[in-house]
Nucleic acid binder design. Structure first.
Lengths: 145, 145
DNA sequence: GTCGACCTTCAAGTCGGCTGGAAGTCAAGG
DNA sequence: CCTTGACTTCCAGCCGACTTGAAGGTCGAC
């Protein structure tokens, strides 16, 4: 039986985050001793699952649905979610590549004003989503371990 | 001379957003008539620039620095920002591709439990950032025009 | 002279994924 | 008994890019 602090140390997930996950239903409510949470080692695997799936781009809400529905076999749920997310990630890759090409063109730009520069013409990157390259996508490292 | 509403209609950028951009310094303060903003057609090109650059993954803060510094030629600033962002977008593409491979594996998964499934083994996607596939990256469409 | 369309400012709310602090509980050790 | 330390709950705040709402100003048309 692990206290929340021990789980935090072993998983690298902060205690506050564990409580937050529980409040969302991403983690089940553990047994309690004198009001304090006591976890089985199982939770560590669960956290590894959450971590991996989160890195694959799923929200905590999707993850909750994935891990909390015990009626279907894991593989079916995993497959359903994966199939749902695959087109999205493909779109993301396409768009990221379009942005990459744009940045390369920009890097070679010699225009003196924005007005003169075809980089900013109306159709540039038009059908692409805004890529969240900065804060959310690239600045974090780490995870469970 | 365009009112804020006309600019909004022509550019597809809401009036509230135009004021917000102005408050950040992304747009310059326009002339006023009886307290109301009057824009020149120039602002439309500026908004197109903002839109394209934002789609390339830059924050409004970066964009403000790009468009408001009039001392250097446009090309130099564009190049500096592009060169700064290129490695980030390359990393994003690499990670998105790793996630793509993971999702394909997940789609073919036959495991009955999470415990049995190597998809969730510790090293899976370990060194990858969390890709913001959901909300910020893929759900929006639109832009200026 | 008042209606409606349009504009103004400022403050607060939204989304997701947390993080941090305040204030209280509880068991073990000196 | 008292301290220490780890736990508890609840709630505010953070990031970025906006959006929304309240309360009011300005204009032309009828």
């Amino acid at each position: 039986m692990l206290t929340i602090g021990e789980v935090a140390r072993r998983s690298g997930v902060k205690a506050s985050t564990l409580r937050y996950y529980e409040s969302l239903g991403v983690l089940p409510e553990p047994e309690r001793v004198a009001g304090q949470r006591r976890y089985t080692a199982e939770v560590l695997r669960r956290l590894a699952v959450v971590d991996v799936v989160q890195r694959a781009g799923f929200s905590l809400e999707e993850i909750r649905d994935l891990v909390s529905a015990a009626d279907e076999p894991a593989s079916r749920r995993v497959r359903a979610l994966a199939d749902h997310k695959l087109p999205q990630i493909e779109a993301l890759i396409d768009r990221a590549q379009a942005v990459h090409r744009w940045l390369q063109a920009a890097s070679a730009c010699e225009c003196e004003t924005f007005d003169a520069c075809s980089l900013f013409d109306d159709r540039a990157l038009r059908d692409d989503e805004r890529l969240p390259v900065g804060r959310s996508a690239l600045l974090r490292t780490g995870g469970s371990g």
